[in-house]
Write a protein that binds this DNA or RNA. Structure first.
Lengths: 319, 319
DNA sequence: TTCAGTTATGAATACGTAACCATTTTATCA
DNA sequence: TGATAAAATGGTTACGTATTCATAACTGAA
């Protein structure tokens, strides 16, 4: 219609500087009239890029992932990338993994990796930039996390500092670096003092956390404070305690880790431990990932951010 | 490597029944050894499908969209679709719209349409299945919503029923069907009695809602109850009131609309109006959309679900 | 055996673009 | 004016798959 070759049309769209102005106009006019929209599949086939990033996130009802997903999607979109999202429970990891391998993407950002996950090796062989956030793999490569051990330590230590002596801990699977290190840090602060019966490792589902709380409430001496290994766990613990008509923090104090945005809400006011500058781990990770994609820098990303206490209203001062 | 043609490999992957068992095995073995992964771009190019659905959602910090996004993404994934997500504020609609037109997708699901949005016509011309949830367009086509007028009416009426006479309303832009109808319903219940000064239409941002609350608190006679036109607004209103050391519901009652999952949490216990069967609007919409995509049914979807009151703890009974 | 019918396989093509190389046109300068 | 360089354009191919059509290899009954 414009009387030019397909090659010239392609140039008009991609490198208009190489085409005479009058020709550009002819082509643009034809594009307008034909209501032409370039076929992205075909372009991607030949360029072997996808402008897509795969996000494997934890479930969205966990406010941590709500925060990170928003940050990741918005940033990636602003940089011109589409985001192919999957929300995945640890139980369904295999299925999600196999799907991700089939889909051509420019980069992969995931939170669900296990410490000894064999999938990590497959990822590396894919030769696609990828990064994990919140959790890391034993190979100690390509991750963004908070200092989980420090976080666990600060959480426990802060409770002790205000007089708590019977401190319980509700965590997650120790196959996950995050929970393993937070637990390690907490144990470090609690020392020998801590009793087995005050420790519960949940699978982070609501029912599992309920069982954990029930377990704690059955002890002859109730704990005066409970550490939730994540804000999500802590919030679920609080909810469960409230159902038992236990007041927070009057009867039992609760401490979280993550400093999720929700934690600062007036209705919540969760005392927690989080990133010093309140930066979003997801945002840091996606920034690094896009950097990796665009600058082909294959230097390995290892980011561990320092944390501090955010003192709010779910911890009672006993002294 | 398997000693067969590319055609046969294709058949092994798509219609293995048409291939001799021994050949299938040879090919699968080669696939294994070569670490072969089919190129999805190429397949999509020839099939002219994308197995992708575009989701244009409101911001994720709004718990309503957190609920719907999770439901939509999970359902679509389970049906084998990828989901290309965008979180978009009403202010940035144009930009998101233009991006969506460029991207090849099998279907579009969006919440952000305005009542008189000209984009709707462009969508129809695209000849791609699409559906709106939560909001609808004036053309009255392809939407899933709750009965917003009924919801507004029930919210106001329920407050009156327990003795409230000074009822305020914090809403959203009336260019949005959802807010327009909820407001209409509320007005209908409140009748002539309602004073202009108790009405505030925000743009649903936190700062705007703060201003609304400040406005209400400046009135000589304070309202005894506030209707938030959505749970998100209601929760922000509560947060703002708490910051002013106003107790809920002792000093002021608050009512929401949507019955977001968060509303049922012990820490929140928001009294609200929502879908009778507590079904997720996003889930209904994505189910319909995939139905449209796969069965080519072009019958227009018009779903308006009935609502009821969910009595919880943010409304005080005055009588 | 033979022949028709069936099953299994392969060769060639199309999908719509970007990239490469070749060619034509235009501009520049001696 | 001619030679040379530069700019503009076109022809062709490759990307990796599904599909169509043709062919080869079997099968079973006469």
């Amino acid at each position: 219609m414009a009387g030019v070759s397909q090659t010239t049309v392609s140039r008009v769209l991609n490198t208009p500087d190489l085409v005479k102005a009058t020709t550009v106009n002819k082509v643009l006019k034809a594009i307008e009239q034909l209501n032409y929209i370039p076929n992205e599949q075909a372009r991607l086939l030949v360029t072997s890029r996808t402008n897509t990033i795969a996000l494997l996130s934890g479930p969205l009802h966990n406010p941590f992932f709500s925060d990170t997903t928003a940050a990741i999607v918005n940033y990636a979109n602003s940089k011109g990338y589409k985001v192919d999202v999957q929300f995945v429970q640890d139980e369904e990891l295999e299925h999600a993994y196999s799907k991700i391998l089939e889909r051509k993407v420019d980069g992969i950002i995931l939170s669900c990796i296990l410490y000894e996950d064999p999938f990590f090796e497959r990822l590396k062989r894919l030769d696609i930039p990828f990064i994990t956030f919140n959790r890391k793999h034993q190979s100690n490569e390509n991750f963004v996390e908070i200092d989980n051990e420090q976080a666990g330590y600060i959480a426990a230590q802060a409770l002790q500092a205000v007089g708590h002596q019977h401190i319980a801990y509700v965590g997650g699977h120790l196959t996950v670096s995050t929970y393993a290190n937070r637990f390690k840090g907490a144990l470090c602060a609690l020392g020998e003092a801590v009793s087995e019966k005050y420790i519960y490792h949940s699978n982070t589902t609501r029912t599992s956390i309920s069982e954990g709380v029930d377990h704690l409430l059955q002890q002859s001496t109730l704990p005066t404070a409970i550490i939730g290994a994540s804000d999500s766990i802590a919030l679920n613990v609080i909810d469960e305690l409230l159902k038992h008509n236990i007041r927070i923090p009057e009867d039992i104090s609760v401490m979280g880790i993550d400093n999720v945005e929700l934690a600062a809400y007036e209705q919540i006011q969760l005392t927690t431990v989080g990133h010093e500058t309140e930066k979003n781990l997801g945002l840091i990770a996606i920034t690094e990932l896009i950097e990796m994609i665009e600058n082909k820098k294959n230097s390995c990303v290892r980011i561990t951010e320092s944390v501090k206490l955010f003192n709010r209203k779910t911890v009672k001062h006993l002294k």
